[in-house]
Design a protein around this nucleic acid. Structure first.
Length: 621
RNA sequence: CGGGGCGUGGCGCAGCUUGGUAGCGCGGGUGCUUUGGGAGCACUAGGUCGCAGGUUCGAAUCCUGUCGCCCCGACCA
């Protein structure tokens, strides 16, 4: 018996029984290839914005991906479970995430039941699983342990798009591990990393692991797995030597050297009428952007705290990385129960609404006094001040003088111009030199995030009082990790990576069927008989085979076979009279004429190889 | 939430500017012919033109409101 995936669906099916509806025209609702093809080939239908039905063909794909995921999770000792989607608000209040996930731009669907209890539909399961752990895990003897589930998740995306790629209801594998210490967590994290690599390889996907921001979920180490594709929503920055790859949100690099100001330039203010941008300032005064310190004002909103004005200093040639800024603000100010809800550039209208004097936007300098906030109606009356690390070594520089139409040249950071707290706030850009090797430059590529693994630490176990007794008899919070794979997104990412002008070219390991037998002319009794015989023999050999027994013309069946993307096609046609069939590999389209008797032995090793996906030969499935 | 766009038969679209019998292609059904790359001919079914008001003798078309969806941005395990 060939095949290794014990969760494979039924191994035979006739197209006449498959409720297959393919579309000749591109649907108007889709505009990336994978979304168009999944709709055209009859894999999915939209039910409402960001909500999709998984039709039988797609469900087979998802079932096969799930099978691979299960095998690899089980292999590293994770336990499959199924947790509630309907979750009580109080659990989320205890972790401090209810506000952040429901208020403002929160992504959690929430509702009130007839007893007036607040509930949420789970976008993730840290709270539930940690509450269970608190209940069940008491001793270090029970650790480590790892639970996983394959579940429908709900996220009220502001703008769902690209079909299954960013849906409001989607399938995810999520896993949570519990440990007595960081070393055990790190070990499981490494095992997960390896398991994820195997999962994507077995699915036939080219994926890269990148350093990532841990975002709203919290925690320290975090790594994303990206399926490389043109239409990916994430920007990856990596070095050609393969030693560094990171999401742009997280990426670090060496800033270029600042160009020193000519020493002859006089210190002090100078007139810069209407030169409120870096570009205008440079043009008007022969300056370089790296000689300027720009000041950005933002307004951060934390749950339960007054809005907090933020003053950020950046070198003029650098861009702010808002994710880094959010993280910096969160770690300084958020505290438990006051998550950062919103961060936006501060506007003149907002200043006016606070009944404050107008601020000279475009001419701001780091010396801007907290006094300008003193009369604010409900804002915190002082700026949270941060500066990007690249400013530390800057000598003399130009900055705003906090008066309209005027900048100033200062000799450097000093008592009049104190250097704010230094943090890495700048966005790394393609072309930047790498930190690990200044000879290497960052290059950009795009990816679809299909997996994300985190070392969470004790953030949730502390909030939810999930404690265990150590070997020394001391109570400590559990150390946690969490690990996600977007299963439905992965299916679409596979199409994005594997298609051509004719349709989908599924990697065999996740194809809905491994082989399709096409009867060229279903009215021809000889063809029909031979096709039926092959169909039965292939299915009996454990190959997942689809029989196109429709009374359509051959051309229609070929088009559909290409569109739905079954990896192997066996055509029973004119040659049937002499016992010959044609075998075509979908990817590449190479055709072989074979005697029907020789088909099975010819195919078996090829299909067996396909089931390994991209897994290296030396590794057992 | 800001900007742009679209709602007309199952799908893709025209008609709207300039109000007057609701159309085309694909798809569905029936029959005949055809039969290895989305066949041909004939017949046929299928639409309160997103919804609600308004203007008008008369509204798919003009006006107001509303709902839904798509795209860009912001947002995002």
């Amino acid at each position: 018996m060939i095949g290794s995936n014990p969760f494979r669906p039924a191994s035979e099916m006739r197209v006449t029984r498959l409720m297959l509806v393919t579309l000749r025209d591109d649907p108007a609702e889709a505009d990336i290839p994978s979304h168009r093809l999944l709709l055209r080939a009859g894999y999915t239908r939209r039910i409402s914005a960001g909500v999709y039905a998984y039709l039988p063909l797609l469900w087979r794909v998802l079932t096969k991906i799930n099978g691979i995921v299960r095998q690899e999770m089980d292999r590293i000792g994770a336990l499959e479970t199924l947790l509630p989607q309907l979750q009580p608000a109080d659990l989320w209040e205890r972790s401090g995430r209810w506000q952040g996930y429901t208020a403002g731009e929160g992504i959690m669907f929430h509702l009130v039941d007839r007893q007036d209890r607040s509930m949420g539909l789970g976008p993730t399961h840290e709270e539930v699983v940690t509450a269970l752990a608190a209940d069940l895990l008491r001793s270090y003897r029970q650790l480590p342990v790892c639970l996983y589930q394959i579940q429908t998740k709900f996220r009220d995306e502001i703008r769902p798009r690209f079909g299954l790629m960013r849906a409001r209801e989607f399938i995810m594998k999520d896993a949570y591990s519990f440990h007595a210490d960081g070393a055990s967590l790190a070990a499981t994290y490494r095992e997960m990393d390896q398991a994820y690599r195997r999962i994507f390889q077995r699915c036939g996907l080219r994926a890269v692991a990148v350093e990532a921001d841990s975002g709203a979920i919290g925690g320290s180490a975090s790594q994303e797995f990206m399926v490389t594709a043109e239409v990916g929503e994430d920007l990856i920055l990596s070095s050609a030597d393969g030693r560094y790859a990171a999401n742009q949100e997280r990426a670090v690099s060496l800033e270029s050297e600042a160009i020193p100001l000519e020493p002859s330039r006089p210190l002090g203010p100078f007139s810069t009428p209407a030169q409120g941008s870096i570009e205008a300032l440079c043009q008007g005064h022969g300056l370089e952007p790296s000689q300027i310190v720009k000041v950005l004002l933002l307004l951060a909103r934390f749950a339960g705290l007054p809005p907090q004005p933020v003053l950020v200093c950046l070198r003029g040639d650098q861009q702010l990385n808002e994710v880094k800024l959010r993280n910096a603000l969160t770690s300084r100010l958020a505290g438990s129960g006051h998550p950062l809800i919103d961060l936006q550039p501060l506007t003149a209208d907002q200043v006016a609404a606070q009944e404050l004097a107008p601020l000279p936007f475009g001419f701001l300098g780091p010396q801007l006094s907290d006094g300008v906030l003193a009369a604010a109606r409900d804002w915190a009356p002082r700026f949270e001040r941060l500066a990007d690390s690249s400013l530390e070594c800057l000598g003399a520089f130009v900055c705003g003088s906090n008066q309209d139409g005027s900048h100033q040249l200062v000799a450097g950071w000093d008592a009049q111009t104190p250097l704010p707290e230094l943090v890495d706030l700048r966005a790394a850009q393609p072309g930047d030199r790498c930190q690990h090797d200044p000879e290497q430059r960052l290059v950009a590529s795009r990816g679809i995030e299909v997996g994300h693994i985190f070392q969470l630490g004790s953030k949730y176990s502390e909030a939810l009082e999930a404690r265990f007794t150590t070997e020394d008899g001391v109570d400590e919070p559990l150390v946690m990790g969490c690990y996600g794979i977007g299963v439905s997104r992965l299916a679409q990412a596979a199409v994005e990576q594997h298609h051509d002008a004719q349709g989908i070219c599924w990697p065999l390991a996740i194809a809905p069927f491994e082989l399709i037998v096409v009867i060229a002319n279903a009215q021809d009794g000889v063809q029909l008989a031979l096709a039926e015989q092959l169909y039965a023999a292939l299915a009996a050999a454990g190959i997942e085979v689809l029989l196109d027994d429709r009374a359509e013309r051959a051309g229609v069946k070929f088009k559909d076979a290409d569109l739905i993307g079954i990896p192997w096609r066996v055509v029973v046609g004119r040659g049937a009279a002499t016992g010959m069939v044609e075998v075509v590999e979908r990817a590449g389209g190479v055709k072989h004429e074979l005697a029907a008797d020789a088909l099975l032995p010819w195919l078996e090793p090829r299909i067996e190889a396909g089931r390994r996906g991209l897994l290296p030969d030396e590794e057992p499935v």
